[in-house]
Amino acid sequence: MKAAGLLIVILTGGLLIYATADFPPWAYPQSPASTHVSPRYIEKSIEETAVPNVVTAVLADYRGYDTMFETTVIFAAGVACFLLLRIRVEEGPEEQLFRHSLTGMTIRIKDGRKAPSDLEEFERIDAHWVPQDLIIKTVCRILIPFIQLFALYVIAFGHHSPGGGFQGGVILGASVIVLAMSHDLRSSLQRMGEKVNALLCAAGVLIYAGTGALCLAMGENFLDYGILAPLFRCDPVMARSNGIFMVEIGVGIAVMATMIRIYNNVSSAGRYDEGL
């Protein structure tokens, strides 16, 4: 297997290196990729969409269909992860560990017997529980609002600086993942439950497709934001910029919810009780 793999790899690599002889030199300004369609994007994007960041303009306006179906692919991946891993917790023997927070004593409750939920002193802990995590918990609790604020800035300011819905959505999702890692999965599920997460995941794709359908309903092509000008009370060029912003919000919500859902499923192997 190893020898066959090595042979295939060397053959393929040799062929590809032979093919580089026909490539234009590296970073050559007149290369075919840089001479056909991209000058049009660079020269016209700011006067047609009022968005200085060409990447955002091309992503959400000129190639809006592409991004819409990429968002759908992400949504589908989140659903696939859920369908593959999620199981009912009631199945099989279950063990719960509780810690008496005053003395540090741990008790184990087996086979779904009644847990001391009414006692304040007992807290549920994971099977792999790390005791001294006060610094991590405090630092994460202070940092999470700032991470979320930065993520919102990245989504909102993607027109003028690097950023946009994908990056901001991933950072928003990462803030919830940090909460789940520093505390435990149950406390992150209290703040963003499974149903809320599933709704947000679909809502993001719906916002994107809905913006496109709104343009269609107002008598233009799908995802042609210029027609939305009366809704935003501005000229068609600015309406394109605002339409891009709506789409970026949809992308951000969908990506955030999908990242959280994949993390919840992978880290708890679908049981949603004990995380990383």
């Binding site: 960041n53 994908f166 990462a174 993942i177 993390y263 990383l276």
Partner: peptide, 21 residues
């Protein structure tokens, strides 16, 4: 810059967490 930002948040951040999980 946009691709680098995405890779910093996605590749170095979230996908490492998925692998560790």
């Amino acid at each position: 810059v946009d691709v680098a930002f995405t890779e910093a948040s996605v590749g170095a951040g979230v996908s490492t967490v998925f692998f560790v999980g």
